[in-house]
Simulated scan of single mutants.
Amino acid sequence: MTEQAYVSGPYVDAEQQRAAGLMGMYVFLGSEIMLFGGLFAAALVIRVLYPHEVVEASKALHIWIGAINTAVLLTSSLAVAVAVHAARQGQRRTVVMLFAIAAVLGVAFLAIKAFEYSREYADGVLPGFSDPARFTGNVEHLFMNLYLIATALHALHVTVGVALLSGVATFVGTERLLLPRRSIVVENTGLYWHLVDAIWVFLYPVLYLAR
């Protein structure tokens, strides 16, 4: 049976259907970029107006924990990229294995992030639990609030990504999602995960390397 048999209306062929699927995903990813773009814009304004205070606040973050998490996400993104290529070739087992690896790495990222939050709580710098004497001014508190909002929002996206990776891996593994005919589902899941990865790649220098 050819891929043409799986084309649904109003599309005339598989390529048009695939292009429409990708376009819908690009529009969704664009809205996510605008969401985080506002946070990056706020970080830029604070850095320009109060460079010294931002540097001091950034020193409270655990740079090596953030670096480890960056490596974890980059590795998971590589696994997803290879899985997408395998999906186009109809390599079902490879897709399942690599998506499972990426999902496990996503969980590892969340666990490391939770540990980092616990360390910041112990250090008295986590917003809502911070030591009033820990920082010398309101800007430092503002920076840490921005840090918590941005990283917590990103962690939420990682959680959604892990659920998507696990779900797609399950459907592919049980052959409820046939490859390569429905490889667009794997591709769109990969695009979402790459966005999550890319956002962290920008968050890390903006927050951790501002010192």
Results as ranks from 00 to 15, higher is better:
5 A>T: 15
11 Y>M: 08
181 R>M: 15
14 A>P: 06
38 G>H: 10
137 G>K: 09
202 F>E: 01
163 A>N: 04
112 I>H: 15
173 G>N: 03
20 A>K: 05
74 L>T: 13
124 G>W: 00
113 K>L: 07
137 G>L: 07
36 F>T: 03
88 R>W: 10
80 V>E: 00
199 I>E: 00
93 R>W: 04
49 L>W: 11
134 R>T: 10
58 S>Y: 06
98 L>H: 02
44 L>Q: 10
155 A>I: 03
191 L>S: 05
181 R>S: 09
116 E>H: 06
72 V>C: 02
132 P>C: 10
175 E>H: 15
91 Q>T: 13
107 V>G: 01
202 F>S: 06
14 A>S: 08
63 I>T: 15
163 A>P: 03
46 I>N: 05
119 R>S: 12
108 A>I: 08
162 V>I: 11
34 M>L: 15
208 Y>S: 01
116 E>Y: 01
178 L>D: 03
121 Y>D: 14
19 A>F: 07
65 I>D: 14
92 R>L: 08
153 L>K: 08
118 S>W: 12
120 E>K: 04
11 Y>N: 07
199 I>L: 14
100 A>K: 12
46 I>E: 06
125 V>F: 02
3 E>D: 11
141 H>N: 11
167 G>C: 12
48 V>F: 11
28 F>V: 11
200 W>A: 02
94 T>K: 11
127 P>A: 13
141 H>L: 13
39 L>G: 03
178 L>P: 01
180 P>A: 14
155 A>K: 05
176 R>P: 02
135 F>C: 05
40 F>D: 07
76 S>G: 15
16 Q>I: 07
116 E>P: 02
134 R>K: 14
48 V>E: 09
90 G>K: 12
73 L>M: 13
107 V>K: 03
39 L>S: 01
74 L>N: 15
143 F>G: 01
82 V>N: 11
191 L>G: 03
32 E>V: 03
88 R>V: 06
76 S>H: 02
10 P>K: 06
100 A>L: 06
113 K>R: 12
190 G>C: 12
180 P>I: 07
156 L>E: 05
52 H>I: 15
10 P>C: 09
